[in-house]
């Protein structure tokens, strides 16, 4: 294998990358979750990020998330763009003071040495209109290539994040292409002798065909309505977790319709709002449910990295002590 590292060539197969990152973050005290089993466009949308970023409880997890983006499908013909790519997602809540150092250690673990490469944290504001979420942070550059999204969540589902989570999203294909020195994603070796092409090319062709040509738009429209309705009735029964699954399905169906060109520019905003409203209601339902349970994870003292004590006033998470979900009253939100 052609390796372009400073030192001697190393075998960094796609799955080695995953294994190394998992080992690194597990050693910091992260729970290794498994990919969520509903279609999502990004690891952020999995409940292990979107919902857990809410409320006062600690949460430290790492997982691979296959991410489906129907509009990015290229029938297996583009060396960079995929219907489905893989993200390695790390969520650290509260964000540790040394989160950048922990991240840089993870790069060293996958043989990206900051003294051998130009590693830079370049400003990047992140916003997801469909999740009612935004955050600030960086795209991390390695020799000019964006290899990670690094975000401090400020708001999620319309709610303030207190404490703030750090989200690290490694673009696995990009990093691996870099490490293996190949130009096309399909030339990546997943394990010795087995390339990405053998594993995913047919998937890309079929999924792209589905997204752009073969899907039944009228069925998709009715699925959207049905999932939305189910989400809302589940929320009325105080079941935010299954409701959120339905919200995710709405989001994926919307993406399929969008790729199919079935949604006009004017309708688009309306659909995005419907998806966002679902996500917001689920966020609120989740917060209510966790409050009712007494925020059980608070008792675990589960933290990763350096967590310095509050020296100036109360910790930000104390905010939730002042929030009551008992009444019908809307919990406080901003924006």
């Amino acid at each position: 294998m052609a390796a372009l590292l400073g030192g001697p060539p190393t075998d960094v197969y796609f799955q080695d990358l995953i294994l190394t990152l998992q080992k690194h973050w597990a050693a910091q005290g992260c729970v290794l979750m498994q990919p969520y089993d509903i279609e999502v466009g990004a690891g952020t949308m999995a409940p292990a990020t979107f919902l857990r970023a809410l409320g006062p409880e600690p949460w430290n997890v790492a997982y691979v998330q296959p991410s489906r983006r129907p509009a990015d499908g290229r029938f297996g013909e583009n060396p960079n763009r995929l219907f489905q790519h893989h993200q390695f997602q790390v969520v650290l809540k509260p964000s540790p003071k040394n989160v950048q150092a922990l991240y840089l250690d993870s790069l060293r673990a996958i043989a990206i040495d900051p003294l051998a490469h130009d590693i830079r944290f370049v400003e990047d504001d992140w916003e997801s209109p469909t999740l009612g979420a935004w955050g600030l942070g960086w795209e991390v550059w390695c020799d000019g290539e964006e290899i990670t999204q690094f975000t401090y969540f400020q708001q999620c589902g319309g709610f303030e994040c207190r404490p703030v989570s750090a989200e690290l999203t490694y673009g696995l294909e990009r990093i691996c292409k870099y490490l293996q020195g190949v130009d096309s994603v399909y030339d990546l070796e997943w394990v010795r002798g087995v390339r990405y092409r053998e594993l995913f090319y047919a998937n890309e062709v079929e999924m792209s065909t589905h997204a752009f040509r073969a899907s039944d738009a009228s069925l998709l429209f009715s699925l959207f309505d049905a999932h939305e309705k189910e989400c809302q009735q589940l929320l009325r029964q105080d079941l935010p977790l299954p409701a959120y699954d339905q919200a995710l399905k709405c989001s994926h169906v919307f993406n399929l319709l969008d790729a199919r060109g079935a949604i006009s520019v004017t309708e688009r905003q309306g659909f995005i709002k419907r998806v966002r409203d679902n996500a917001r209601s689920c966020a609120e339902g989740f917060l209510r449910a966790r409050a009712r349970l007494g925020y059980p994870l608070l008792a675990t003292k589960w933290t990763v990295g350096e967590q310095p004590p509050a020296l100036e006033g109360a910790p930000a998470s104390d905010f939730w002590k002042t929030v009551s979900f008992d009444k019908k009253a809307e919990p406080p939100r901003r924006g």
Binding site: G6, L115, D118, I119, D143, E145, Y178
Partner: peptide, 22 residues
């Protein structure tokens, strides 16, 4: 413009060129 005087310029040059080339 790198923030670090890297050990082997050829290595990051190759990276910069690859990204721009793509």
């Amino acid at each position: 413009v790198s923030n670090t005087p890297v050990r082997d310029e050829a290595l990051s040059r190759r990276g910069y060129e690859k990204v721009l080339g793509a």
